[in-house]
């Protein structure tokens, strides 16, 4: 499934991460510390989870731009479950369960409404944002207890539990993609949905399941959000859809589907978070972060167009 060019892409991204680390370590004494490395990783949790779902959707030729709002809604639900003193195990399941339901809604609109995923989820983004507004009523949800924080930051042999959960999610996705029928079916649909149907695949079921899985991952991201920030503001998740799409495309999963790279997404998220953290430490205002994300995305996409033209021109 990952072809040669995919491996080349992974190496390029890994090299870019290493180069960025060296550059920022030279420019800022605060960057190259163990504490800051832990911070960069910890800041990546939600994006890694959301980008994993986005990778599956984009490999299938779909997309979900409502992911930030889904994370917002599920974070609020998780926060309220925490305030209601529910058992911690239940609190951690509320987000993923609600996220799966919202993802399923998006999938249903796309599949049965026959609306392009980007349009359908843009509409749902508006609806979910309104939900956040109605629930929060213009206030912040804050003063949450630190129970979840202790879970996520608990260390097993020095490795934070949060990182382990993220790794577990990617590992499970890898097993489903490579060792079960899900992988070939997902990629066949991403390559050509009508053809996949003619070949007898249960296209609707795979599409719905993938939207639901992505929603569940957004819900898990909502749990992490509460654990790490212990508050929810009105603007929660406003930029994370752009970041996730950027990380997935940087990682080499094409926007039109048919190919997938989990390693690429892991590295794409890492590169974004290193750049954001490094730029902040050398004194670039945080407003510029979305510019960096957008510029990186445009840069990679135009480089691909140029390379493709060069290749086909040469052939």
């Amino acid at each position: 499934m990952d072809d040669q060019s995919g491996v080349g892409r992974d190496l390029t991204l890994a090299a870019a991460c290493v180069a960025a680390v060296f550059l920022f370590a030279l420019l800022s004494p605060a960057f190259g510390t163990a504490g800051n490395a832990a911070t960069v990783l910890r800041n990546g949790y939600e994006l890694w989870l959301i980008a994993l779902g986005m990778t599956l959707l984009m490999a299938m030729g779909a997309i979900d731009v409502s992911v930030g709002a889904v994370m917002g809604v599920t974070a609020i639900l998780t926060g309220q479950a925490l305030l209601a003193d529910l058992p911690l195990g239940v609190v951690m399941l509320v987000g993923p369960a609600a996220g799966a339901m919202l993802g399923l809604c998006a999938g249903a609109v796309v599949v049965w409404g026959r609306i392009p995923a980007i349009v359908a989820t843009l509409g749902l983004f508006g609806v979910f944002r309104m939900l956040i507004f109605l629930v929060l009523g213009g206030q912040w949800l804050s003063g949450l207890p630190a129970d979840l924080t202790r879970v996520v930051d608990w260390r097993a042999a020095g490795v934070p539990a949060g990182l382990l959960i993220v790794a577990l999610a990617y590992g499970a996705a890898w097993v489903f993609l490579r060792r079960t029928t899900y992988g070939p079916h997902l990629l066949a649909i991403g390559f050509d949905e009508d053809r996949a149907r003619l070949m007898g695949l249960a296209v609707t079921r795979v599409r719905l399941a993938t939207f639901a899985a992505s929603g569940a991952l957004c819900g898990l991201a909502g749990v992490f959000y509460i654990a790490i920030y212990r508050n929810v503001s009105m603007t929660i998740g406003a930029d994370i859809a752009l970041e996730a799409v950027a990380a997935v495309i940087l990682g080499g999963t094409p926007i039109f589907g048919g190919r997938i790279s989990l390693v690429g997404t892991v590295l794409g998220v890492l590169l974004l978070r290193i750049l954001q953290n490094g730029l902040l430490l050398i004194g670039v205002p945080s407003l510029w972060q979305t510019v960096v994300t957008g510029a990186l995305l445009l840069g990679v996409l135009s480089a691909e167009v140029v390379l493709r033209r060069a290749r086909t021109g040469a052939a």
Binding site: P184, L187, A188, G190, F191, D192, R195, M199, R259
Partner: peptide, 8 residues
């Protein structure tokens, strides 16, 4: 032309 998924 439609028999197979060429990416697989």
């Amino acid at each position: 032309e439609l028999a197979l998924s060429e990416n697989l």
